[in-house]
Deep mutational scan, measured.
Amino acid sequence: NQASVVANTLIPINTALTLVMMRSEVVTPVGIPAEDIPRLVSMTVNRAVPLGTTLMPDMVKGYA
């Protein structure tokens, strides 16, 4: 099973992502692959992402 990116904290809308905000976890449904974490750093989220939420491609500006 592939690990996905999961919010390690509440990420407010329009926040630039940092490494400490994200962790990898095997979850269903599958979200952004964990190997993309380095690429996500400094990208911003377009909605509030609660703790434990899987990051989906449409949640990160410029990812999809």
Score class of each variant (00 low, 15 high):
E35H: 15
A3P: 09
V60G: 01
T9V: 12
N1W: 14
A34V: 08
P33N: 10
L55C: 02
P12K: 11
S42Q: 13
S24H: 12
V26A: 13
Y63F: 08
T15I: 06
D36A: 13
T9S: 08
M43N: 05
S42V: 03
D58R: 08
G31V: 02
V60W: 02
P12E: 15
V20G: 14
Y63I: 05
T28H: 14
A34L: 04
V5F: 02
A64H: 13
R23G: 09
I11M: 05
V60F: 06
V41N: 05
K61S: 13
G62L: 08
P33A: 10
M56E: 08
S4Q: 02
E25K: 09
P29I: 05
A16K: 11
I11F: 02
V20R: 15
M59N: 05
R47V: 12
T15W: 06
R47N: 06
D58M: 08
A16P: 11
A16R: 09
P57M: 06
T28V: 11
I32F: 03
N14L: 06
V6E: 00
L55S: 00
V27L: 05
P29R: 05
L17S: 00
T53D: 14
L55V: 09
R23K: 11
R23Y: 05
P50S: 07
S24F: 07
P12F: 06
A7Y: 02
A16G: 08
V26Y: 14
V60Q: 01
T9H: 14
D58Y: 13
A3T: 15
I11A: 01
P50M: 10
G31R: 01
I32Y: 01
T53M: 14
P33E: 04
L40G: 01
A7V: 07
T28E: 14
P12W: 04
N14M: 15
E25W: 06
A7L: 03
N14V: 03
T28S: 11
T28I: 11
V41M: 09
T9G: 09
M56W: 07
A3I: 07
I37F: 03
P57I: 06
Y63E: 03
I11N: 02
V5W: 02
I37R: 09
N46A: 10
V6L: 08
T9K: 15
D36Y: 12
T53H: 15
Q2M: 12
T44R: 10
N46I: 12
M21E: 03
N46W: 08
P57G: 06
L55R: 01
E35P: 15
N1R: 15
N46C: 04
Q2P: 15
G31F: 03
Y63D: 03
S24I: 07
P29F: 03
V60N: 02
P29S: 04
Q2R: 14
D36C: 04
S42P: 01
A7D: 01
R39A: 11
P50K: 12
V6I: 13
T9W: 09
G62R: 06
L17Q: 00
N1L: 15
V6T: 08
V60H: 01
V20S: 12
M59C: 04
T53K: 11
V27K: 12
R23Q: 05
N46D: 11
M43E: 05
P12D: 07
K61R: 15
T15V: 11
T15R: 07
M59K: 02
L17M: 07
L19S: 07
A64I: 10
S24G: 11
S4V: 01
N8F: 04
I37D: 00
K61M: 15
G31H: 02
T44V: 13
V20A: 13
K61C: 04
S4N: 02
L40H: 00
L40C: 03
M22I: 14
V60D: 02
N8E: 09
N46Y: 15
I13L: 10
L17G: 00
V27F: 02
N1V: 09
V30I: 15
Q2H: 14
M56V: 10
P57Q: 07
V60I: 11
G52C: 04
I11G: 00
N1A: 14
N14S: 08
P50V: 07
D36R: 09
I32Q: 00
E25F: 06
T18R: 12
D58C: 05
S4K: 01
E35S: 13
V60M: 05
T44W: 06
P50D: 14
I32S: 01
R47C: 05
S4M: 02
M22T: 02
T44Q: 14
T54L: 05
T18F: 03
E25I: 10
V27E: 02
G62V: 04
R47I: 14
T18E: 09
I37M: 14
A7N: 01
P29G: 04
D36M: 14
D58S: 11
T53S: 15
S24W: 09
S4L: 02
I32A: 01
V60P: 02
G52Y: 05
T15K: 07
S24A: 15
A3S: 10
N8K: 08
N8L: 06
L19H: 12
L19W: 08
L10N: 13
M43Y: 09
V41C: 04
V30R: 14
A48S: 14
N8S: 11
K61E: 15
G31T: 01
S4P: 01
R39M: 11
P33R: 08
T18K: 07
L51F: 11
S4G: 04
T44H: 11
M22Q: 00
P50R: 07
T54S: 05
V27S: 05
I13R: 15
V30M: 07
A7F: 02
A48G: 08
G52P: 00
M59I: 05
L19M: 11
V26L: 14
A16T: 09
T54Y: 02
V41S: 04
V6W: 02
T18L: 07
S4W: 03
N14I: 03
V6M: 06
M22R: 00
P38L: 13
P33I: 10
V60A: 00
S42C: 05
E35T: 12
I13H: 09
P29C: 03
A64R: 03
N46R: 08
G52S: 07
L10C: 05
T44Y: 12
I32K: 00
M43D: 03
A48Y: 12
I13D: 11
P38H: 13
T28P: 00
Q2W: 10
R39V: 09
V45Q: 01
V60L: 07
M43H: 08
N1Q: 13
A3G: 12
P33Q: 06
L10S: 07
T9M: 15
P33H: 10
Y63P: 04
I11C: 02
M22V: 06
T54N: 02
N1G: 15
T28L: 15
M22K: 00
V26T: 08
R39T: 13
A3R: 15
R23I: 07
L55N: 01
Q2A: 07
T53I: 10
Q2L: 11
L17V: 04
A48D: 13
A7I: 04
T15Q: 11
A16Q: 15
